[in-house]
């Protein structure tokens, strides 16, 4: 029994007392590992670096880069071209037929088109460049409809130029060209260089002259600074640069009191507010000078 025991102890590994002390290297490594900066660098910095390096190495090959970009664009294409993103119809609302067709011709792409490709802002700017369109609102509605809500400009006045008749809105912006004056007999006419820039003033003058509207043929901008009212029979009312509306009111008042415009007068000159002047019609001048009518006052 004892012999067996000693045999067993001989066969088993020789007992070397284990040294619990860490080796110098292990000790240093552990201290290094317990250093916060180093620990952070290993746990966060190194994985990040490794991933970045792998990515850079993979991308350094031109063929792979090309293949990846092709694949990416293909993916993008297939996603964009899904039926739920396609726009197949344009609905224009609030536009006259001419403007409607103009807008439809203006759309720079073939329908159907993916809504990702639509640049609604650019399209809106483009539509608003049409003179007849005051404001356009674009929206893509459910069901692939591009809805264009148009607010048109309303023509309020005609501007006769050497080129023809232009319809202007109340701000003086061009709406469209009118080929035939008789198509819009309801609109007053203005003419003269730079008249379109003073449409609001012209409209105010016309509003003030409404009592004599039947006689008015139109307004003429003279010297790009003041207005003349042209009446039937080629008679004129010359308005001052400042206070034109008051002058018109004055003429209207005199006309109502004295029937001024019913008389043979060719020009009513109000350019100098302190000194309004009348010019007789030339055929009546001879008659006036031959008789001995005493003229008093102004």
């Amino acid at each position: 029994m004892r012999a067996l025991k000693s045999l067993v102890s001989m066969l088993s590994a020789p007992r070397v007392p284990r040294d619990p002390a860490p080796s110098r290297l292990a000790y240093r490594m552990e201290r290094l590992w317990l250093t916060p900066a180093f620990r952070h660098a290993v746990r966060v910095g190194m994985p990040v670096m490794a991933v970045l390096m792998a990515g850079i190495v993979w991308l350094s090959d031109a063929d792979r880069r090309e293949a990846m970009s092709a694949r990416l664009s293909e993916l993008r294409e297939s996603f964009e071209n899904r039926p739920e993103f396609m726009v197949g119809l344009i609905a224009v609302e609030g536009a006259s037929p001419a403007v409607d067709s103009a807008i439809r011709q203006m759309v720079p792409f073939q329908l159907p088109v993916s809504s990702f490709r639509l640049d609604l802002d650019a399209l809106r700017a483009r539509i608003e460049r049409i003179d007849a369109v005051a404001r356009a609102e674009l929206a893509i509605r459910k069901g692939g409809v591009l809805q264009v809500q148009i607010t048109e400009r309303q023509p309020v006045i005609l501007w006769r130029t050497a080129g023809g008749l232009e319809m202007l809105d109340e701000t003086g912006h061009r709406v469209a060209t009118l080929l035939d004056r008789t198509a819009r007999p309801d609109l007053p006419v203005i003419t003269g260089e730079g008249a379109d820039a003073h449409v609001p003033e012209a409209l105010a003058i016309l509003r003030a002259a409404r009592p004599i509207a039947a006689r008015i043929r139109g307004l003429v901008r003279v010297g790009e600074r003041r207005w003349d009212i042209v009446l039937d029979g080629d008679r004129r009312i010359l308005l001052p640069q400042d206070g034109a509306i008051e002058a018109v009111r004055r003429v209207v008042a005199i006309d109502r009191a004295e029937d001024l415009l019913g008389r043979a007068i060719s020009v009513v000159d109000l350019r100098n507010p302190g000194r309004p002047t009348l010019r007789l019609a030339p055929e009546r001048v001879a008659q006036f000078t031959s008789s001995d009518v005493e003229v008093t006052g102004q």
Binding site: D19, A21, P22, R24, Y27
Partner: peptide, 8 residues
């Protein structure tokens, strides 16, 4: 070595 053990 003993100091190293304790410190570690």
């Amino acid at each position: 070595r003993a100091i190293r053990t304790a410190v570690q």
